[in-house]
Every structure is written in structure tokens, then in C-alpha cells.
Nucleic acid binder design. Structure first.
Length: 591
RNA sequence: GGUGUCGUGGUCCAGUUGGUAGGACGCCGGUCUGUCUAACCGGAAGGCGCGGGUUCGAGUCCCGCCGGCACCGCCA
């Protein structure tokens, strides 16, 4: 049906008769001569219809945007070159133009920049756009490169069930009712976590899978209800075995797919260090600034907002320096306070060190008091290493809260003031806390997941001080995004039971939900560990886009709907009955 | 669950202190042998997401709902 691709016409084809298929990207009709830009997935080439050929000329004059065409013609060098396209030196003189299928009543033209709603509803048109073709191809290349790397090293690609068992911990499950077992449900996997551990126990040694995962939680710019992980697991390994291997993989794949050079080796930092310096467990190291502890400067002042946390072992008083920030307006400062508030700040103090040496602050009267001949404000200026013209934000309160909102502020300020460098900054974050206390549930929850091994080997020691237990988990972070996370797993049944107990999962529940794992751990389970990478996020980073939707062919909206197919949708009564499912009446307006 | 923001011809947007809708692109018709999302001339096309309310009068103000997007909660 065709001999060449439009976008690949070049010197080699000059003088040749070619047959091209594609879509009409544009028509330029001069009355006497007609140009049609024919586009396929490789690019665009110009078709010329001369009036000498009556048949061709007639068809060409009527070509519309996005008509699907087959063109036969001869390639020649153009008299006036178009530098904007790779094929700009050549054109195809048509001897036949066949309208394979007309395009009518398009909801939008491809170059029109329609809004997201339109793009999602007519995704097949949106995907025709070269930008989308390019992003999707980046993703394809990424997956190919990863597979090639893994296959060459003996990793074994094994599929795991999509219809599986609901888990009590973690995200909300997507459920699938069982027809055969009335009232019972499968769950779609949040990740193949337990299966890959069982594969290690089964002796497969090194496993990987490009696995679809499902989590029924609210969406974000970088989160979809179904997403793809490169899931990996290794037997007989410790942290560095896993980390060094996948670090080399990521470095090579980024070079190959994106032409991106990543540091060798990646810098490493503990979770605590990351929180202290950057207020985040996934610090963006493209931004130079760090949080500075200034508790020492305010320990003895009367201003309790500062002095109380400064003297509390679980408290923190931290400053963020904004170079040249003295020019920030009152309105901008209020904006930053509001931003910090979203992340839990009860208030945000600012202090300006003017170009003229004048100190102004939102809490000046509390900070101007002398102590040993030196004002608190000047001590803050020294502590935060301020220069004239700088500003600092100061946050005070609980250590984790302060770190978090000051970290959020650091990102926001850097983005607003153009302080995010054009660079690639990977790192490992290690030594995560094992547990986190959930106030609403009044119990500990696993920070990573319940199968992550603690650093201590002894279950009793773990139980003695769970709040300070450190895990053998690790995250790979790139430019402020968590691209991969994993851990060394628990491989001894006593430890696994102890962790379940600490999480408030009783003996009976552990048996019912994870009995198969506990049994397997008793049958010679090898030490093992692994990691999973977010394929979508990797594709976003390499592709240079902010929205996960841009790297998924058919994504869902923030309310988890598919605007093209209109899923989810009601199910008829017969189908429901077969599944033993009854739909509850919606309450409230519109119900 | 919450906050913010947007919703106006097919598409993207503008619509001042409330006075009865406007532009660009596209579309339709016409002119034109070298353009680059050709150019030029002419034309058609919406009652402003939906439902209430205030008002003599509502894209413009108020209330509720729906939808897109971003964020908080949530995402082991």
C-alpha cells in the first residue's frame, strides 16, 4: 500500500517514484498549484499537485484537514526550501492522490491547542499531534531500553495475577466481584509485591516485570489510578547490591533514551538528612538553598512561638534564606504564608535585611530585644548567613511539620524566582523510619510497606522502640520526584509476625490475609530485596512534561473518568445479579 | 472530603461600574501557478456549562449542581 514514510523522504529518494500514506496536515491552494502537507508518524512532506494533471489537481483542491490520503508521486528537490521541517529540501510531485477516508466535522484542528477536556474526549486526534507521538515514542524507547538491559543480565520476566487478593494495608483497592463465589471479591494489584517475593522463595533469583498497578485513590498531575511500574526483585542481596545494579541501569537508560548524563555515583543521604536540609523525603537538588536550623538564636527569647519549639527535642525552628528577597512585596509574602499554611504552618515569620542594612520583620517587636548586647534579629542574620538585600522565612513548631512546610516553601520560592537549575540531580534517600504514627487510626502504619525489613535483626528490639526504628528501605529520587522505591524484605517469619503485630494486625487477621506469605517464609525463604520504578514518571522526566496524562495513551481525568469511552458507567441489572451485586441508592441531591 | 481556578460561535479567547454578545483560527463561496497553519475578498455560525434567585433588565451579582485542571487530605 505504501513504499516510504513521509517524514523520512530524503536525498536517497530523489527521482524515485514513491507511494505515501498519511493525513493532510495542511493545504495551500494557489488556484494554479496546490500544496498538501502529508503527515505520518515519522513527519511531514510536501505534496505538489500541478494543474497539468487534471485528476490530481481536482482531488488536491478539495483536500481538507486530516483527510486520510494515499499519494503516488516522484520525489524531487525543492526550488525554495522550508527549513522548518526535516524533509524541507524535497517534495513529492503527485501523479495520483487517493482519498482513503475523508475527515469531517473535526472537533478541533491539531494545531489549535484545545483544552484538556477536548483532548481527552477525542484522544485519537490528540495522539495524532507530533508532540504526543514524540512523548509516546519516548516511553516506548524507555521500556525497550529497560527490557534490553534486564534481559541481557539474566533478569526473568514473569507475569503475576491481575485478579488477586485485597490487602488491608496501603491504598484503597479496586475490587472485582466474583460470579462463582457470591459475595466475594478479587482485588486488582496495587503492586506485585507479594508475588515477586514468592518468586524469590520459588528460586527465580532475579525477576522483573513491566507491571500495571491499580490504586483507588485521588489523582494528581503525576498520579493515575492505573499506572505502570518496572518491578524488580533479587534473591541473596543487601541494599547496595540492589542499589548499585539499578543505579547503573538508570544511568545507562537515561543516556540511551534521553541523552542525559547522570552523576556516577548518585549522592546518598538519609531520610533524616533530607528532611533537615530540604524539608522533603524527595529533595530537589536542582535548587541550591537549604533549610538552616536557627533554634540556638531564639532559645532564650520571650517570644514563645520560637522559644518553645527551640527548646523542645521534637521541635524545630528553621530558616530559609531567599537571596535578594528583600524586594518581596507584602502581597507576595502573604502568598508564601498561605502556601506554607497548606502544608500545616500555623504561621510564617519573615525577616528582611534591607540593602540599607535596615531590618524589618513580621515579628520585629519580638526579635529586636537585646541579649548580651546583640539583638535577636542580628543573630538570626548571622545564623542564616544573610547578605544585605536578603530575606529569610522562619518556621517554628513540631520538627516534622516545620520541615515539611519549609520544604514546600523552598520549592515554591525557587520556582517563582527561577532558582531551579537546568540540570539532572539524582540521589538515593535511605534510612527511612520503619513506622509512622497515624493519629486518626491511633496506630503505627508502615512508611514503606509491611514487608520492609528493619535495620535491627531482633524482633524484640524492634518492638521496644518502634517510633525510632529505621528500615532497610530506599528511594531513588530525581529532580524532586520519587522515581523508584524499594527495600530489603523481611525473610524470617518471626520478624514478619512481629511487624504485623506492631501494625495492629492480629494473629487471626495476619493468618487470613497473609497466611500464604507466612507459610512461605517458613520454607527456606532466601534473604531478598528489590525495587520498583514508576515508568510513567520516568517517561515524564525524559519527555520533559509535567502531566502524567501526556505519557499515557488513554488516561483518566482527575475524577478517574475516561472521557472517551465514558467509563465508568452503569451496569444493567442482569449483569449485576450474576455478580451478586446490589447497588445502593445514592443519597443527596442528584441521587 | 476540602481549597483555588476555569467553563462564552466548531476551536482558542475578549467581554469595562448589570443595558440585550465580539475577535482570531477553522468552516462555506470566490480570486490567485511556489506556498510553508499561503494571501486577499465575501458569507454563515453562539445567547454565554445546567438549574434557581435578585433586578425593569444578568456572561456580568447571589445560591446550588455538573464538568476540566491544580493543590491539601489520601496515595503501605
Amino acid at each position: 500500500m505504501r513504499s516510504h514514510y513521509c517524514g523520512l523522504i530524503g536525498q536517497a529518494e530523489v527521482g524515485q517514484r514513491v507511494t505515501l500514506c498519511g493525513w493532510a496536515d495542511a493545504r495551500r491552494d494557489h488556484g494554479g498549484v496546490v500544496f498538501v502537507d502529508l503527515r505520518d508518524h515519522e513527519g511531514i512532506v510536501q505534496i505538489v499537485a500541478d494543474p497539468d494533471n487534471d485528476q490530481v489537481f481536482k482531488v488536491a483542491s478539495k483536500v481538507g484537514y486530516e483527510d486520510c490520503l494515499r499519494v503516488i508521486g516522484t520525489v524531487r528537490v525543492r526550488s525554495n526550501i522550508n527549513e522548518k521541517i526535516p524533509t524541507g529540501h524535497y517534495e513529492v510531485v503527485a501523479e495520483s492522490i487517493e482519498l482513503l477516508n475523508a475527515a469531517r466535522d473535526l472537533p478541533f484542528a491539531l494545531h489549535e491547542n484545545p483544552n484538556e477536556e477536548m483532548r481527552l474526549k477525542y484522544r485519537y486526534l490528540d495522539l495524532r499531534r507530533p508532540e504526543m507521538q514524540k512523548l509516546m515514542r519516548t516511553r516506548i524507547k524507555l521500556v525497550q531500553a529497560l527490557r534490553r538491559w534486564l534481559d541481557a543480565r539474566g533478569f526473568q520476566d514473569i507475569e503475576t495475577p491481575i485478579l488477586t487478593k485485597a490487602t488491608p494495608e496501603g491504598a484503597r483497592d479496586y475490587l472485582v466481584p466474583s460470579r462463582v463465589h457470591a459475595g466475594q471479591f478479587y482485588a486488582l494489584p496495587q503492586s506485585p509485591q507479594l508475588f515477586k517475593q514468592l518468586l524469590m522463595i520459588a528460586g527465580f533469583d532475579r525477576y522483573y516485570q513491566i507491571a500495571r498497578c491499580f490504586r483507588d485513590e485521588d489523582l494528581r498531575a503525576d498520579r493515575q489510578p492505573e499506572f505502570t511500574q518496572l518491578d524488580m526483585e533479587f534473591a541473596f542481596v543487601e541494599e547496595r547490591d540492589v542499589q548499585d545494579t539499578v543505579e547503573a541501569m538508570i544511568r545507562e537508560v537515561f543516556r540511551e533514551v534521553g541523552g542525559i548524563e547522570l552523576a556516577d555515583p548518585f549522592p546518598r543521604m538519609t531520610w533524616h538528612e533530607a528532611m533537615r536540609c530540604y524539608g522533603s523525603d524527595k529533595p530537589d537538588l536542582r535548587i541550591e538553598s537549604e533549610l538552616v536550623d536557627v533554634a540556638d538564636a531564639v532559645k532564650h527569647i520571650e517570644f514563645k512561638v520560637f522559644s518553645d519549639p527551640a527548646n523542645d527535642p521534637d521541635g524545630r525552628v528553621a530558616a530559609l534564606r531567599v537571596p535578594g528577597g528583600a524586594d518581596l512585596s507584602r502581597k507576595q509574602l502573604d502568598g508564601y504564608a498561605a502556601h506554607a499554611a497548606k502544608f500545616g504552618a500555623k504561621g510564617l515569620v519573615w525577616l528582611k535585611y534591607g540593602h540599607d542594612g535596615m531590618i524589618t520583620s513580621s515579628a520585629l517587636k519580638h526579635l529586636s530585644g537585646d541579649e548580651g548586647g546583640e539583638s535577636v534579629a542580628s543573630r538570626l542574620i548571622v545564623a542564616a548567613q544573610m547578605a544585605q538585600g536578603d530575606l529569610i522565612f522562619i518556621g517554628a513548631g513540631k520538627w516534622t511539620t516545620v520541615s515539611t512546610f519549609m520544604g514546600a516553601l523552598r520549592l515554591k520560592v525557587a520556582q517563582d524566582r527561577g532558582l531551579v537549575s537546568q540540570s539532572w540531580k539524582p540521589l538515593w534517600v535511605t534510612d527511612f523510619p520503619m513506622f509512622e504514627y497515624d493519629e486518626t487510626e491511633q496506630r503505627y502504619v508502615a512508611l514503606h510497606h509491611p514487608f520492609t525489613a528493619p535495620k535491627v535483626d531482633d524482633a524484640e528490639a524492634l518492638g521496644a522502640d518502634p517510633a525510632h526504628a529505621v528500615s532497610r528501605g530506599y528511594d531513588m529520587v530525581l529532580n524532586g520526584a520519587e522515581i523508584g522505591g524499594g527495600s530489603i524484605r523481611i525473610h524470617r517469619p518471626e520478624m514478619q509476625s512481629a511487624v504485623f503485630r506492631l501494625l495492629g494486625i492480629g494473629e487471626a487477621e495476619a493468618r487470613a490475609k497473609f497466611g500464604f506469605l507466612l507459610d512461605a517464609l517458613k520454607m527456606g525463604a532466601p534473604p531478598h530485596g528489590g525495587i520498583a520504578f514508576g515508568i510513567d514518571r520516568l517517561a515524564m522526566l525524559i519527555g520533559g512534561t509535567e502531566a502524567i496524562r501526556d505519557v499515557i495513551a488513554f488516561p483518566k481525568t482527575t475524577s478517574a473518568q475516561d472521557l472517551m469511552t465514558d467509563a465508568p458507567s452503569p451496569i444493567d441489572a442482569r449483569q449485576l445479579a450474576e455478580l451478586h451485586v446490589q447497588v445502593m441508592q445514592r443519597t443527596g441531591p442528584g441521587g
